[in-house]
Write a protein that binds this DNA or RNA. Structure first.
Lengths: 214, 214, 214, 214
DNA sequence: AATGAATGAGCCTTCATTCAT
DNA sequence: GATGAATGAAGGCTCATTCAT
């Protein structure tokens, strides 16, 4: 019994280390050796528990996704849509700027977008795509039913892309240009508030442009 | 036809192939073998012309940068700032969505942000950072002198990040969610127009929020 | 018999093969492939056990040094200095002419002198230089305190160089000029005796020349 | 006519550079590229003038040998043998310690002894071995006709090895142990004088030991 | 007479994976 | 349940050599 428990603990340590490394370097650049070293376990254990690197990646991604899902509660529909958007954005940004497990999901997602392996496409489509659909609906609620679908989609892209950008900024000194953003919680809130304010105005503008056009 | 060509031609073929592969896969994941195969030359020629992979990367990046710079004329300052922003965004988006050489620069930049090698930081700082400064000034012109610098920076980030996101979408089927954006010129213009409209409204909102604060 | 052995055994086999090859060909000209072939192991095992070629070289040198040190007991100080010199020279020559592990240390040292890598300078200074200092003292004991230091040093060089020369003779047919020295133990003793006799007389001559000068 | 002259000049430049590099690094560690760079000529010229690296080595060696021979006039036989030995040793040491062309021959010889290629064995046997025979005779003249041949040979080895050692000392900081020998002409004379004094005494000692033995 | 261009062979190293215990 | 040992495949780099002009 205790033995099994140890096994699960070891497995978990590998998974945690894998999340760290994969989110930091992406699938290909991550080294199995490095993951094992960080986990403090034997190199062969990866094969023992996960078969191969690819499967470890999928499992790590699944864990990151679960951790993300658990804490990613969308704001209650009773709130006005703008307020729901505000909370959603703050939620995203806080996790993006969180150096701990909070950013694993978003970082792996980004690495996968930048350098696709195709290994997690299916899981992504099954579990994450619906979330994006919720974001779509949220924006649709703000814009009203009359604007064409493409406009809603473009607004959704604008918001998601604004948030995603901050992942990159954490990874490279290049993006900074000496503008040392400090990523404290306070800063996260200021960024989130900015994106919210910026985007709500953007949405409204796109909205009225569309209605004006027709 | 001749077996020993001009040399500059061969060099150029290597460089072009390198731009393709590096922008597609990033420095580490790019294979010198693959670059040579695409260029139709011997593996050792890379050493002959460029010394090593690192230097080839730097040279490829330099070429991508030159190609980018040549066509990246900022709008004349005589135009009102909003119009200049519109043109600047269209310029960026068109090149981002251009499958040919136009997107090399932005793609390599993205790969470098996601997986920094540090090899091009210096060139980036020297040549690209000033461009970002111009974008900063452009937004400052729109916002006026009274808003705090952080607000201007955040707006700049919002715009750049909106544009950058479309590079990711080109690389992965994941981001699409079946929303097959066609990346024709027409589509590029629609996206650019959206970002412009969205962002100008965003900028103004942030602007008035700031002045209201004080 | 078993396919997976103790590991230390394999490590030792690599090390022994490395001593052979490195002492025969020097660092640069030695081929890791050849070492592995001689050790009967896979090429990648070098990386597994030693990291890289440089480190294997350092470890091989260390082993050669240890084997050398263990049997390199200086003659007891109770003996008259001439007798101590006689024993020291015999000790050196016997190991120089020993085709087995005995000559590894001196051969690698020679290769390093002829084609320095700099990889073993530190270990050399720490462990071997003091030995040379002992030889210096031994000669100083013979010469007495009045001769200038340079004379002692030159005598030390004369003795060491006489011994070293026989390493060269073993490596090339060129030096032989058809004078097939057989390197049997008997021959080693005759060479050692010659060098001793030759050198003691030389030392005394230098000694009296110096005292005559003053 | 002038063209041919240029050709000879180029050929000579290659040869001089080859002597430098080969004597410094030995055959295998010398790089054709480096030789050409030092000669200021095209890489392919080596093949044009010399066919391949091996032949260039042989030719470089031949030139070094010629330069050596020209200046290596043995002392006149009219002098007493000890004086002839003194001059011969000074001759060797001066050239050994000469950083310019003087040391090429001895250095290449040493590298060949330490790491034989076998490429110059024949030339060595034909031209150099006789010189060693002269040295043998010189020592024989000192020792007289009664000592066994092996004793003469061992004395010859003692002298040659004493001289050879100083080549190694110039190449590695290791051999020095902080005893910075300065290799000025003055120093060369002191070393030569030491070896002479040391060796003549040594020869005599061996001599009398032998006669005493019989 | 001379050279720029190009190549092939070989080397060291990395790394995921497999084997035997 | 877990691990130390070992390996094969592949990558980047070096370098002497060859080719065409």
């Amino acid at each position: 019994m205790t033995k099994r428990k140890d096994g699960q603990i070891t497995r978990q340590k590998i998974l945690d280390a894998a999340c760290d490394i994969f989110s930091e370097k992406g699938f290909r650049q991550a080294r199995v050796t490095e993951i094992c070293k960080r986990a403090g376990i034997n190199l062969a254990a990866v094969n023992y528990y996960f078969g191969d690197k690819k499967n470890l990646y999928v499992e790590a991604w699944r864990q990151a996704m679960d951790q993300f899902m658990v804490s990613d509660v969308l704001p209650p529909r009773s709130l006005p849509p703008e307020e729901r958007l505000r909370q959603a954005i703050r939620n995203i940004i806080q996790k993006v700027l969180d150096d701990r497990t909070g950013s694993h999901f978003r970082r792996i997602e980004l690495m996968e977008l930048a350098n696709p392996t195709g290994l997690i496409d299916d899981a992504w489509r099954a579990l994450i795509a619906p979330r994006q659909e919720e974001m779509f609906q949220l924006i649709r609620d703000i814009m009203g039913p009359d604007v064409p679908e493409e406009s809603v989609r473009l607004c959704k892209m604008s918001i998601i892309n604004q948030c995603r950008g901050y992942i990159l900024n954490q990874k490279s000194r290049m993006g900074m240009m000496g503008e040392a953003f400090d990523t404290s919680t306070d800063q996260a809130d200021r960024i989130a508030e900015h994106i919210t304010c910026f985007s709500i105005a953007g949405i409204r503008a796109v909205c009225s442009r569309n209605t004006a056009d027709f």
